[in-house]
Nucleic acid binder design. Structure first.
Length: 191
DNA sequence: TCCAGGATGTTCT
DNA sequence: GAACATCCTGGAC
C-alpha cells in the first residue's frame, strides 16, 4: 500500500482534517510495528488562528507549518507529545492535529509503552496515541508521504458519516467547528 | 460516571 | 520563568 500523496495534504486544513478520518497512521520502529485508524482530528490555521502555534509568528518548531504539506509536526504540551500533519502548500501555514486512533496492529507493544491494559485507554487522546505509537520529538519534520519512511499515513476505508464540533481545550477558539470525529467510535477522546 | 485540581516536560521569552 | 491544542487520580454522587 502506498502512503497518501502530498497533494492530499496541500489543501485547506479543514478539508484535510475531515478526510484524514478513516486513514491509517503507521509507525515502524526497531521495537515493532504499530498502526491505528484515525477517528478524531482538529484543523489549525496560521496567523489568524489564536489557538495555532503559527499565530505567534514564524520560527522554531512551528516553522514547518509554513513548509510543504505532508510533513510531521510534533511538539510537547503539558508533558505530552502531540502529532500533527502539515497542511496547505509551502508558504501558507496550516496543520491537522490527530486526536484519537482505533488501534489496529501492535496492540501488545502499545500496552507496554502505555503501561495500561484496557484497549480503549491506548489511543483515545492526542497524548495517549503518541505514547502508544512511540512518537516523540525525534519524529518532528518527517515526510509522511515517503513509502520507505518510519512514519506514514495510508489510505483506509472510506468514511460515510462524521460529526464536527468546536476544538477541545482551546481557550480562544474560532467560530468554525474545526474538530472532526467518527460518531460511532468508542475511541474518540470526548463524547 | 463526572468533574476539579495537580503533575507533567519542552519550548520560547 | 511562564505558557500550554493533556493526562490521571480521587472524591462526590
Amino acid at each position: 500500500m502506498k502512503p497518501l500523496p502530498r497533494s492530499f495534504y496541500e489543501r485547506d486544513p479543514s478539508a484535510v482534517a475531515r478526510e484524514l478520518l478513516g486513514k491509517v497512521l503507521v509507525h515502524r520502529s526497531g521495537e515493532g510495528l504499530t498502526s491505528g485508524r484515525i477517528v478524531e482530528t482538529e484543523a489549525y490555521y496560521g496567523e489568524g488562528d489564536p489557538a495555532s502555534r503559527a499565530s505567534r509568528g514564524r520560527g522554531g518548531l512551528s516553522e514547518v507549518m509554513w513548509g510543504p504539506g505532508g510533513i510531521s509536526f510534533v511538539y510537547m504540551v503539558h508533558g505530552n507529545w502531540l502529532f500533527n500533519a502539515v497542511a496547505f502548500p509551502e508558504g501558507k501555514a496550516g496543520a491537522v492535529l490527530v486526536r484519537a486512533l482505533e488501534p489496529l496492529q501492535g496492540l501488545e507493544l502499545m500496552r507496554r509503552r502505555r503501561g495500561v491494559e484496557e484497549e480503549r485507554e491506548l489511543t483515545s487522546g492526542p497524548g495517549k496515541l503518541t505514547e502508544a505509537m512511540g512518537i516523540t520529538g525525534l519524529h518532528h519534520g518527517r515526510d509522511l508521504t515517503d513509502p520507505d519512511g518510519e512514519l506514514l499515513i495510508l489510505p483506509g476505508r472510506r468514511v460515510r458519516r462524521f460529526m464536527r464540533s468546536r476544538r477541545i481545550g482551546v481557550k480562544e477558539d474560532l467560530p468554525e467547528r474545526l474538530r472532526f470525529f467518527l460518531p460511532g467510535s468508542p475511541f474518540v477522546s470526548k463524547r
